[in-house]
């Protein structure tokens, strides 16, 4: 499934099983007195691609970090595959094995080669045999089209290449859902395409993806569902065609008129 042929453009058909893989209910989070998330609810089904758009400071990145427990929430509930993320008894390891995350700044390990970056977590966290991990790592590196760069250090790669290594590194843990936190925001326009192509392939293969993005064209193309957030709430959500063509809320319309 992971290595299926890439399908061209357009969101893949959502599988029949629409049981929510990721589910947020009235999630609230504050930094001190400042409330960043003021009651967010959303459901992302298995194989679904959800895009979160909205102005800077609307809490998009915070929201995505809450999903794998990087950022604790004050109220509400987040479940991933039925596991309550903020349950103090939760095995964080089992949660994070299911949820991969890719950051704006790639955050590759600068002292490790590309291959080592991809292999480190499966070797040390999952304690899988080296030969098996290496085989998977090499095919993931091929998948993100970086064959030949296995021995390179992150500092020797372009931003787009580093970001694709970061995606491969995350996939090496065989997650069930991938979170992308503005992964193209720090890239040159020409390398943005390479990264988006990689994500598009993943989405087409049925990987559940939640993206925070400023790439409206991309969101419109790959998303099954788009959420527009502003001021810590979801102002409007729906299929991309409806949001981008006939948004109801004036805030959504104003935002889209500025960015499109």
């Amino acid at each position: 499934m992971l290595f299926a042929d890439p399908i061209a453009a357009g969101p893949a058909a959502i599988p029949q099983d629409r049981r929510a893989l990721v589910s947020l209910r009235d999630v609230r989070k504050s930094y001190g007195a400042f409330e960043v998330l003021k009651g967010i609810s959303l459901d992302v089904g298995k194989g679904e691609v959800a895009c979160i758009i909205g102005p800077s400071g609307s809490g998009k990145s915070t929201l995505i970090r809450c999903i794998n427990g990087l950022s604790p929430i004050q109220d509400g509930s987040i479940t991933v595959d039925g596991q309550e993320v903020n349950d103090p008894k939760l095995d964080k390891l089992s949660l994070r094995r299911k949820v991969g995350i890719v950051f704006q700044q790639y955050n590759l390990f600068p002292h490790k080669t590309v291959l080592e970056n991809v292999m480190l977590a499966p070797l040390k966290v999952l304690r899988e045999p080296r030969a098996q991990v290496e085989e998977r790592a090499l095919s993931l590196i091929a998948k993100v089209r970086l064959t030949g760069k296995e021995r390179a250090y992150p500092g020797e790669l372009s931003g787009g290449q580093q970001q694709r290594v970061a995606i491969a590194r995350s996939l090496a843990m065989r997650p069930e859902v991938m979170l992308f936190d503005e992964v193209t925001a720090a890239l040159d326009p020409e390398t943005v395409k390479e990264v988006l192509a990689t994500i598009r392939e993943l989405a087409a293969e049925g990987m559940t993806c939640i993206l925070v993005t400023h790439e409206m064209g991309f969101a419109r193309e790959v998303a099954h569902h788009v959420y527009f957030t502003d001021g810590g709430v979801i102002v409007e959500d729906g299929p991309p065609d409806r949001i981008f063509r006939e948004a109801q809320d004036p805030r959504t319309r104003q935002f889209l008129s500025q960015v499109l």
Binding site: R96, F103, V125
Partner: peptide
């Protein structure tokens, strides 16, 4: 060491001890 290193290690399910040993201290 930039906090991004800690975050990405945490996102990959490394424990704090593993993060120090394999990622932070070598740097």
């Amino acid at each position: 060491i930039p906090t991004g290193q800690w975050e990405s290690a945490e996102g990959l399910a490394f424990t704090r001890g593993q993060t120090l040993r394999y990622i932070i201290l070598p740097q």
